[in-house]
Amino acid sequence: MSAITFDRVSHSFGERQVLRGIDLSLTEHRIGIVGANGSGKSTLVRMINGLVAPSSGTVTVDGLDVAKKARDVRRLVGFIFTNPDNQIVMPTVQEDIAFTLRRRGLSAAEIAERTTAALHRFGLAEHADHPAHLLSGGQKQLLALAAVLVAEPQVLVADEPTTLLDARNARRIGELLHSMSQQVIVVTHQFALIEGFDRVIVIEHGEVVADGVPEDSLDSYRALLA
């Protein structure tokens, strides 16, 4: 597993402080992050691949400072967003998966081979040449996942990946997240998604308020919500 560290990380959007002095070391295989809307959890995970640069403090992945080595870090860290519609950037399913690989300067043959493998692994083979917008919501999220994992990142960060999905598709994505050999960091409101995870962190008003095994963390989160 990769080692991700947050060292006294704070962040403000203008006047509003969203993260305050976060110190974390993330080394477990599967980590869940929960918290209310606006608690800062989305900002926190965006720092792992440099989508947001902290106002102060440092974030590192495998010893690389994200602020200075964002490019290298992004090759290690794949990112899944809530709305797959905004993550699919190419017109057809196959082109979208190949997009990630094309940015890596691989040979055409290698791109084709890995794209085909990913299409099969995520059950999208029969839709390879279809326009991506004709896929169902669940299939779109599968495509988003396929397009990120085809590049074989060491870490997968997912920001509420199942919020827009129905129960069946949410379960499908959940199973995939559980079965992955990579380190997985999932932000979610759906507790079922992080059941059996190694560690769950609760964020409230930009601070870590609970951190431990899922049962304990979720208990304290429920108490917080009550």
Partner: peptide, 17 residues
């Protein structure tokens, strides 16, 4: 908003590589 999210996704997917 959609454009911002797409721009973010392009960065996350290695556009600047």
């Amino acid at each position: 908003y959609a454009a911002d999210a797409l721009g973010e996704a392009l960065v996350a997917r290695g556009l600047d590589d």
